[in-house]
Computed example of a mutant assay.
Amino acid sequence: MLRSPRLIHLTVTLAAPGRQCLRQSPSPRPLLFPYARTGTEHAIRTSSILPNQTSPPSPQGQALAACSDLASQKFSLIYAFPAIKALRAVSRLKLMQTGITAALLPTVSYFYLQGQASGAQLTYATGIAAFAAVMLYVMSHYIRRVVGMMYLDSTQTILKVSHLTFWGHRRDMYLPVADVKTVADTGDVQGEVILQLKQFGCSDTLYFSLRFGRVVDRQGFEKVFGTLS
């Protein structure tokens, strides 16, 4: 029996939203604040499945709430790198030096245009400013990847990693313990001066040292990175 065009149009209209809800692209593997990002993805999926919801939860609010929950949890120290304070001082001194040389360059250029400075002096000032900027970039690139402290939560499922930012401030990362590679997984040999802190499916790398650092909680440390002996 033939259906009327109006009935066919109504059938297609009702079926289309159901097919769209089933099309969900796989989410990428989270790196930083993984639980906060998981909460964001959950909020997005909820808003797509319930289109008639008047006030869907905000993804930003879900992410901030998850980060706040992680920050409020109790973590115990398992690793500390005492020299991180010296690296922070070096980072800030390098920022100050670069700022001073960059501020002096316009002054030298002005004196050169007024005929009160030679071309050699302008070239020398430009070279110093450029060298300071390059050294700042190189030093901050490695200093930002040095692990200062590592903590483990009471359930031993979340690893809190503290390192420095470009400006010399502290930054905390929350990583699932199951996603952190052991020393054997990274290919490092126990006894090396510098070891890698890596995650499965992620190319970003941080560095820590057992020779210059201090393992505070051996059992908790081995829970994350494997046995030390």
Rank of each mutant, 00 (worst) to 15 (best):
Y142S: 04
A117K: 02
P57Y: 10
I143G: 00
G99E: 05
Q73P: 08
G115P: 07
S118Q: 05
A117T: 01
F111G: 08
V108D: 02
Q97R: 09
R170F: 06
V161P: 00
L87H: 05
Q73V: 13
T155R: 09
M150I: 05
F166V: 06
T98Q: 13
L64Y: 15
K74Y: 11
T126M: 03
V146Q: 06
R170N: 10
A103F: 02
R88V: 13
R88A: 13
Y110E: 09
R170I: 12
V90M: 13
I100H: 10
S118H: 03
G168E: 08
A103V: 04
L152T: 07
M150E: 05
S58V: 15
H141W: 11
Q121C: 06
L64E: 15
C67E: 14
F111W: 04
A86R: 09
F75V: 07
S76H: 15
R145Y: 02
I143Y: 01
T101Q: 06
D153H: 06
V146R: 07
Q73T: 13
Y79R: 04
T107L: 14
R145G: 00
L77C: 14
D153T: 03
R145H: 04
L64G: 13
Y142T: 04
A117G: 01
A65D: 15
W167N: 11
L95R: 12
L113F: 12
Y110L: 12
A125L: 00
V161D: 01
R145V: 01
A80E: 14
G61C: 15
A102P: 01
A83P: 09
V90Q: 11
A133S: 07
M139T: 13
Y112T: 05
D172F: 03
Q60G: 10
Q60H: 15
A83Q: 10
Y142C: 01
A71M: 14
L64H: 15
S91K: 06
T126P: 02
Y124L: 15
I100R: 13
R88F: 06
L122K: 01
S91T: 15
L64W: 14
V147C: 01
S68P: 08
D69V: 14
P59K: 14
A129K: 04
I100K: 09
L70V: 09
F166P: 07
S154N: 08
H169Y: 09
F166L: 07
I143S: 00
G148D: 00
V108M: 02
L164F: 01
A133P: 00
L64I: 13
P57G: 10
S118E: 02
W167P: 03
Q114F: 10
L113I: 12
V146P: 04
A83F: 09
L122Q: 05
S118N: 03
V108Y: 03
A86T: 12
V138M: 07
L122R: 01
G99P: 02
D172V: 03
L105S: 02
H169N: 10
G148S: 11
Q62M: 14
G119T: 04
T123M: 13
Y137R: 10
H163T: 03
G119I: 02
Q114K: 11
G168Q: 07
A66N: 12
F81V: 04
